[in-house]
Amino acid sequence: MECLMDEKDHEIMQILQNGFPLESEPFKVIGDKLWIDEHAVISRIVRLIQNGVIRYVGPFFDSRKLGYKGCLAAIDVPQERIDEVAEVINRFDEVTHNYLRDGSPNMWFTLITNSSERQQEILNTIKAETGIKDIMLFSSKKYFKVKVDL
C-alpha cells in the first residue's frame, strides 16, 4: 500500500499530523510550503481518503476537557460468538473503537461517556444481552500519547 503515496503525499500527511494551519485558506498555506496549488493539496487528500490511507480529516477533541471519561474495556468472547457479541457492543455510539485481538481477553473496546451511570448502563446492557458477565475495565489515569504519526 506504501506505493499509493508519493513524496508530496507524505509531506501533506506530515503537515496534517503536526498542525493544520488556522488560516482563512489553510490548504493554500499547505500548498505554498510544498510548491503545489491548493486544489492539488485538496485533491491529494481526497485521494488518500478514497485509497483508505486516511480515515478522517477534522478536529480531535480532548474528551476529558469536555467532561467525558474514556475507558478501555476487555471481554473474552468464544470464537463462534465474535460477530454476534461485536454487534451488541458496537451498537453504542459511545463505543468508538473495538478490536478483535489474539490472547485472552480477545475483544477490546473503548467507551467514552460523560457519566459513570451511563458507563454502567452500557456495560450492564452488554452483560445482559451477551450473557458474558466478566468485562474488565481500564480507565485512563494519564495519557502520554494519542497520535498516529507513522
Binding site: 506504501e2 499530523q17 493544520f20 488556522l22 490511507v53 480531535f60 494519542v146
Partner: peptide, 27 residues
C-alpha cells in the same frame, strides 16, 4: 479561527488533522 485557536491552546481541541489507518500506511 480565533475560537478554534483558543480551544487548541486550552486543550479542548487536541489538534486538527488526519486520522490514518496504520494498516494502509504500510503498517
Amino acid at each position: 479561527i480565533e475560537t478554534i485557536d483558543n480551544c487548541c491552546n486550552n486543550g479542548i481541541i487536541k489538534r486538527i488533522g488526519a486520522a490514518v489507518k496504520p494498516q494502509n500506511a504500510g503498517y
